[in-house]
Amino acid sequence: MTANQADVRRYRPRTSVFWWVHRRSYLLFVLRELSCVFVAWFVVYLVLLVAAAHRGSDSYQQFLEWSSRPWMVVLNLVALAFVVLHAITWFTLAPKAMVVRLQGRPLPARMVAGGHFAAWAVASAVVAWIVLGGW
């Protein structure tokens, strides 16, 4: 680079803190990343549930009452929406990282994603079956 060129004033645009509101795809990306907060909340809620159950029948009942307060239900509905967003985006993107081969040929991405969604359905069914007293 010549000295002459180096002297020339460049215009350097700055990325604003709110860069993600300007585009739908950026917004969806930020929502996807924020889903992790609700994954953490899910862990807290789950551990509280287990703790209550371990403490005995009374505290388990108390937990159930606490969980049916309106603001708790609203919070959990929002959390559910975010973890579902997490699950859908996660399984859709999974084939990008994994190249699954069958007899040396790479499997089409749709099938890899399909396998993930099938596993999701099975896992959900098994959990529901256990919780609802099927075993």
Partner: peptide
């Protein structure tokens, strides 16, 4: 990379 995915678009 945090996989925004816009490069591919």
């Amino acid at each position: 990379c945090t996989y925004v995915g816009e490069c591919t678009t």
